[in-house]
Amino acid sequence: MTDIPEEPADQAPCDHCGIFTIPGPLAIQSAWRDITFDPVRDRIWTVSEGIYRTIFVEGDRGVIAFDTFSTPGGARAYQGAMQRVFPRKPVHTIVYSHDHLDHTGYAADLAPDAGILAHELCDKVIRARKSDGQMPATEVFTGERQEYNIDGVRFELLYPGPTHGDGNLAAYFPESKLLFMVDTVIPGVGYTFFPDWHLASYTALMRRFLSLDWDVFVPGHFWIADRKGFEDSLAYFDEMGELAQQAIADGLDADDFDAVTRYTYEKLEPRFGRLFRFDEYFAMNMVRYMQHFLTGGWGIEGNLPPTTTPF
């Protein structure tokens, strides 16, 4: 299904600018995004504009929205999609997956009166950032695991430790056997240079989710996966760690992107070339992993010893 706005021309231009500093108007921020929406399982729906993906859940009286999409226009289109599916059910709760603006930057455009749930580490950054359009949480949880029963919807929020961004949590729906987590497992190779990924502990922390009973994984980008897709993605990260060390041992200079690109095509294309977005990102993935080993990991998040206890 594709959501086509009935009156896009009447959309009030939104001036929430995130952290952009150049003078407006920023047309791309306000532009309407076509959104597709599909039922996944039970009361859970998923929405995507082709690249970004999230979920919303029908409650007894209203809707729980996860994340906000990446621009004010995207947030309004997301709101429009939910209202098309549940026209008499307002969004009363937003759950933030993590702090990044491209996923949670525009609650002010999605549902400014909704309650907002987030992990405390996520909320701390959001409050310090003061980004235009990103609203702070109204309720935070600390620690690793919190059960919620909101408007007839039962789910758990799980924080495995630093994986990507700050306070990045997964939503687990045990009755539906569905796990939702953003900007971690994504189909294909990793995104660009793994921006704000905490590689030291990433795969160990993500494997904690394998102890839970789920068979549908909804990522924050592209298409829905299953357990095998989830495990394959983590195996890719582990393998990239080995390949990056081999590349350094082979004398490859991480600062020479042309050389890294040639190296990846000559040595690794036969094995990995069919992976989604190999051409776009494989060399960037390699550079990022090489930098990880050369520099030692970045900040506290990039150096914490991982907890490996199953959930």
Partner: peptide, 26 residues
């Protein structure tokens, strides 16, 4: 040789909002 990489890094700062407390205004 480098401006493409550097530009991708910087534009993601604006897309994502910066990384961690180190990247906030104060």
């Amino acid at each position: 040789q480098h401006i493409g990489q550097t530009a991708i890094r910087i534009v993601h700062h604006y897309l994502m909002g910066g990384w961690g407390l180190e990247d906030t205004p104060e």
